[in-house]
Design a protein around this nucleic acid. Sequence first.
DNA 1: GCTTAGCACTCGCCTTTCGGGAGTGCTAAC
DNA 2: GTTAGCACTCCCGAAAGGCGAGTGCTAAGC
Lengths: 343, 343
Amino acid sequence: MSRRELDPRKELILKVVTDDYIESAEPVGSRTIARKYNLGLSPATIRNEMADLEEGGYLKQPHVSAGRIPSQQGYRYYVDALMPQKELTEEELTLIRSYFEDRSREIDSILQQTVKILAQLTRYPSIMLGPTLKPAVFKHVQLIPLSARDLLILIVTDMGIIENRVIALDSPVAQGDLDRVSYILNKRLRGRPFIDFKSSVLRELREEIKANNGIFQKAVNLILNTLETRDKERIYLDGIINILDHPEFKQVEKFKLLMELMEEEEKLYRLLSSRQQGLKISIGEENQEEAAQECSLITANYEVGGQVVGTIGVLGPTRMEYAHVVSVVDYIAQKLSEFLSSL
Amino acid sequence: MSRRELDPRKELILKVVTDDYIESAEPVGSRTIARKYNLGLSPATIRNEMADLEEGGYLKQPHVSAGRIPSQQGYRYYVDALMPQKELTEEELTLIRSYFEDRSREIDSILQQTVKILAQLTRYPSIMLGPTLKPAVFKHVQLIPLSARDLLILIVTDMGIIENRVIALDSPVAQGDLDRVSYILNKRLRGRPFIDFKSSVLRELREEIKANNGIFQKAVNLILNTLETRDKERIYLDGIINILDHPEFKQVEKFKLLMELMEEEEKLYRLLSSRQQGLKISIGEENQEEAAQECSLITANYEVGGQVVGTIGVLGPTRMEYAHVVSVVDYIAQKLSEFLSSL
DNA sequence: GCTTAGCACTCGCCTTTCGGGAGTGCTAAC
DNA sequence: GTTAGCACTCCCGAAAGGCGAGTGCTAAGC
C-alpha cells in the first residue's frame, strides 16, 4: 500500500474530489472545485493536476466531457492517507452508550439490536457474524427428562449463550441415571473451552462412556453435534433497504445482485469470516464476492476477554462515507466487546 | 360477495382476460383473445363484451388505446367464482411431503424452512406468524443454578418450544430450595395451558409464594414476563427478492414501500394476526396496510390439535397466480398442522 | 337482434433529432 | 509553473414523428 507518493497539492485535489463525490454522487469538475473549495488555484491548474491524477490511475472519467470520480485506487489512497478522522457526534455517542447500558436482554436480541443500531447510524446495510463458540467455555450441562421418551439436553456457555436439543429415547431412563450423567458431564466440562471437547475431553470421557449406559453416549454425541451445528455462526442483518437511498442502486438489477448476496448466508459468511484483523476496509474489486465488487465493506472484529470472537461490518457503494462509517463501526465494535466481556 | 351475476359468456371473457394478464402482465386486447383462445367469437364481439365488463367495473383500461386488465372487483369475481382449481404437481407434493418427513430439527428451524419452501414454490415473498403460545401447555418448568448468582429458568411446552431466561439473584440459594420450587411449579403447571397461568394458576400459587422464599416469587414473575414477551409471536420471512421478478415492482419506489413493510414487524403482525378464518384472499385495497394496497395477500391458518395457532401467507402483486398460490398455501398449512400436531 | 367486418381515431412508446451545457485538452501568454 | 481563452466532445433532456396495438362506432350479414 503506497502512501504519500503524491505531492501535497495532488493529494489535496484527490481528497477534495473524493469528498465532493462521496457527498454529491456526481462527477466533479475543475470549475466546481475552484469555486467551491477556494484552493487559490484556477480551474485550469486543477485540470492539469486532475489529468495527472487520472494518468496515475487515481481518478477516472465516466465519459470525456464529464468531471472526474475516484477510481478504486483513488479510494484506496484516500482511505489510507487522506481520509479525515471523524469524531462521532455527542448524540451518536450517547445513543450507542445508552443502548449498551441496558443489560437485561438476552444475547441474541442484543446482537440483533447491535446490527440495527449500526445500520441506523451509518445508513448502510449492516452485517454481523455472531460470536463463535470456539473460545467459549462450558458453564453448565444438564440432561432433563421431558416425558418418558424425550430428553432435553441443555448447554450453557460463559457468554450466556444457551443451546438446547431434544433427544428421543429408545427406552425410559431413571432420573438417577440422568443426574449421574449430568453430574459427570458438568464435572468434566465446566470451565473447559468448547474447542477442547473434540480433542481432549472426548478422550477423557471414554471410560465413563463405557461405564455408563447408552445415555451417556447419546448425550456426548448431541454435544458434539451441537458444537458442529453452531460452528457456522449466525449472521445478523439489518437495514438492507438503506442501500436504495443511493443512486448507484437505482437500477433494480444492481440492487437485486446485492440482495441475493444478502440472502446467501454462505457467501456472507465467507465475506466476513476471513476478516480477523481489527478494522478493515475493502474497496470494490478487493472484495472476493462478485456481487460486492461495486461496493466497499468496512468491518471490525469484536472480542471477549481479549480474544476475537466475531465481526461486524457495513456494506455500501464504493462511494461511501468512509470516515464516518469507520468511526461508527470501530466504536460499536469496541462497545460490544466491552459489553460481552462484562457478562 | 356477489357470485354468478354475470352471464356465462361474460364470465368466460373475464376469466380469459384475467388468466392472460396474470401470465403476461400486459393489458389484454380483444384481438389477442380471439386469436389465442379460440372462443368462436370475433374480436368485435369480444370488444362489446369487454366494454360491458368495463362498465360493470370488472375490467379497466390503463389508457384508452390499450387492452383491458382486471380491476380489483374483477379479481375478486375471478377469485370467488372463476378461478380454476389447480392441483399441485407431483414434484411439488413430493417436495413438501419429503420436507415434513424429517423430524429431527428444532421447531424454530422448521418454521423458518417452511416459509422458505413456501417462497420457493410460489415465487412470491412469504410470511409466517409463528405459533402462538396461547393454547400451549406447560410440559416442564425448572430452575437451574448456573453460578452462585445466576439462575436459569427453563420452560418447555408441549409443542417443543423452549424458552429460557437468566435471572440474577441477590443472594445465593440452596439447591434444595430450587428443587422444591421446581417441583411445586411442575406439579402445578404441567399439562396446564399457558393461558390459564395469569388467570387461575397464579391464584392457586399464592399460598406457595407466601410459604416459600423470594425465589418462588421471582420465578413466577419471570414466567409471567416470558409469557408476555412471547405474546407477540415471531415473524418469519423469506423470498422477498422474488418480488423483483415482477414488472410492477421495477420502479424502486414501489419496491421500497413493500420492503419497508417487510421490515416493520409491527405492521406484518397486524396484517397477519387478524386472519383467523381458514384460507383467505385479500386483494389490493382490501388490505388495510397502505403499502400492501397494490398487492394481494393469500393466507391460511395452521393448527395444533384442531386449534388455530398461526398463519402463513404469501404476498404478491394483485396480478398474482391465485390458483397456484392458493393450492400451495393451503397444502403447506395443512401439512404444517399435521406436523406440529404430531409432536 | 345478435354478430361481425370495416374503418377512422386515439394514444402510449420507441426512435430520432437537436440544442444546451458542463467539462475537457490544448495553446499561448503572463 | 499558472492561467485565460477557445475549440471540441458528448451526455442529457425535450421535442417531434412514426408505428402499432387497440378501441368505438357504423352498417351489413346471418
